[in-house]
Design a protein around this nucleic acid. Structure first.
Length: 509
RNA sequence: GGCCCUGUAGCUCAAUUGGCAGAGCAGUUGACUCUUAAUCAAUUGGUUGUAGGUUCGAGUCCUACCAGGGUCACCA
């Protein structure tokens, strides 16, 4: 139940006084002839072409939220803002009449209210483009004041903000307020949309078909993660929110599409951190008649393309570090990377027991009883990952942590898999996809043996997927990338929560 | 889940050894027909996250809980 605070009570009082004056606080009709950006652009164009006098004849009706009020006796300045920008409106008793102007003077119209201003464009003596308002209409009364941020518009259009709304928890819980007052936050999410558009443009022009596959799945798979479980009442059936798109997309290659991609939401029932959210946006593609080397080529081009489309360059700064995204990126085997940074050649320790012993001997700590492949991952995450600032492909992973990848040609321990890293973040994961149904079945069984049933990583055997593969699946390369992390990278945001409009938080009490 | 940090007015933050809970901004009232982080004068506003405890006295110390952040674990 809402308990109005003092500021809110004052606004409720104003609402009552407006009503007495016959001023509707939430009218049904609204009119806008110009966005604010268009009004100022047209005015400047007229000034340049036909001179100041002609420009001042320009009539506009603009709408927006009041961001600043400066009542100065019988003249009042306000700044109003719509999505396109902000403009000053100039209100004088001469144009508006005593009666309505009194309402302004009594502050019945506040900062944060939405208004419609009809008038003619002009420049003030100080040179600021303004709307000399003949008619001001209240469009929506704000009852709860937004957090206070003062802004100064500079000559070049940049806005300097003073004061702030920086309480992280409140910013996430009330993202609407965060967006309403923090312009840079609005910019991040506009950029996010551009990044996703650029991803689509890349795949579309490269001949990929965009598809949509089930989010509710009877058998989940394609990654190792604990799923969210839900239930279909009518069918009396438990269903899982997908943890990846992999198995459904590869079935489509059996169906005859050469290249497919999907952008959508994955759900993983795991911890929350600066780079993990329970639901996150994933992009995956599968392309027939190529392998993981071809996929590396695509990856480099894709990331460079998106950066160029969105930022106009491939050189970025992320949290103070300069990063060059242009290809080619170094390709380093996992084994060499660990040799180099941990000074351990895991091939010298071919059993889990031996590898665990040497990790402990080096002062590392690991949970007991991990499979060999997981110990290798552990070494990598501890010694190598924190150093991978520039884009890097890490290639050839242990077989027992990669159940969907074909083995390499040089030994039986490794498979053709790569992950790529930028700014120490794992951005994505790719394989030369396994297309031998007998081998795939074997891998499912191995995984089942390796990971106990109660293990979070137990990968259920997907019979239907094997059936699809038995019809024949073309050789293909597959790839997945965390879109949120790419957005973090290209918008220089430290936390995944800053690139999600509504990051997951505990329920408010 | 473990450990560490944080929670004070609408916002951003103070508060000495445990000793009267404060400031700026915004809000309110007044002045001002070209201001622009407007200015000037006056002024309101507090269950110090919640519940207990210690104490003559708690924003401050102790315990539990709630929420957020960090970190470790987990995340092939």
């Amino acid at each position: 139940m809402w308990q109005p605070n003092k500021l809110e009570s004052e606004r409720l009082d104003k609402l009552a006084r407006l009503s007495q004056l016959g001023i509707e606080a939430y009218p049904r009709r609204v009119r806008r002839t110009h966005t604010i950006a268009r009004a100022t652009a047209e005015f400047e164009a007229l000034e340049n072409n036909d001179g100041a006098e002609a420009a001042e004849g320009l009539e506009v009706t603009v709408c927006g939220r009041i961001r600043r009020v400066n009542i100065k006796g019988k003249i009042t300045f306000m700044h109003i803002e719509d999505e396109s920008g902000r403009v000053q409106i100039l209100l004088r008793v001469n144009e508006l009449g005593e009666e309505f102007y009194d309402a302004i003077k009594e502050k019945l119209i506040d900062t944060d209210d939405f208004v419609q201003a009809a008038g003619t464009m002009m420049r003030t003596r100080a040179g600021e483009i303004s709307v000399l308002t003949h008619e001001l209409t209240l469009l929506s009364k704000s009852l709860s004041p937004l957090p206070v941020i003062k802004q100064q518009v500079m000559d070049d259009g940049t806005v300097i903000e003073y004061g702030e709304f920086s309480d992280i928890e409140q910013r996430y819980r009330q993202r609407y307020a965060d967006l309403a007052v923090n312009r840079n936050v609005r910019d991040v999410f506009r950029k996010r949309a551009e990044i996703i558009r650029a991803l689509r443009r890349f795949f579309d022009t490269e001949g990929f078909l965009e598809v949509e596959t089930p989010i509710l799945q009877a058998v989940y798979g394609g990654a190792a993660a604990r799923p969210f479980v839900t239930h279909h009442n009518q069918l009396k059936q438990d269903l899982y929110l997908r943890i990846s798109f992999e198995l459904y997309l590869k079935r489509l290659l059996v169906g005859g599409y050469d290249a497919v991609y999907e952008i959508g939401r994955d759900f993983r029932n795991e911890g929350v951190s600066y780079k993990h959210n329970p639901e996150f946006t994933m992009v995956e593609f599968y392309k027939a008649y190529t392998d993981y080397r071809g996929v590396m080529d695509i990856t480099e081009r894709l990331i460079a393309f998106v950066a160029k489309e969105v930022l106009g360059r491939t050189q970025i700064t992320f949290q103070g570090q300069d990063i060059e995204l242009a290809p080619p990126w170094p390709r380093l085997t996992l084994r060499d990377a660990i040799k180099q940074h941990a000074e351990i050649d895991y091939m010298d320790y071919p059993t889990a027991e031996a590898l665990e012993a040497v990790i402990r001997g080096n002062g590392g700590s690991v949970a007991p009883g991990l499979p060999w492949g997981k110990l290798v991952s552990h070494l990598f995450e501890q010694y190598v990952e924190p150093r991978l600032i520039q884009p890097t492909f890490i290639v050839d992973y242990p077989r027992d942590i990669s159940p969907f990848a074909k083995k390499v040609d040089y030994d039986d321990f490794h498979v053709e898999r790569f992950e790529f890293f930028i700014a120490t973040m794992e951005m994505g994961n790719a394989f030369t996809e396994l297309n031998d149904p007998r081998d795939q079945e074997q891998r499912f069984l191995e995984m089942a043996k390796l990971y106990r049933d109660e293990d979070d990583d137990a990968t259920p055997l997907d019979e239907d997927y094997l059936r699809a593969m038995r019809y024949g699946m073309p050789p293909n390369g597959g790839w997945g990338m965390g879109v949120d992390r790419l957005v973090m990278l290209l918008t220089d945001q430290r936390s995944i929560r800053d690139v999600l409009l509504y990051p997951h938080l505990r329920e408010e009490k």
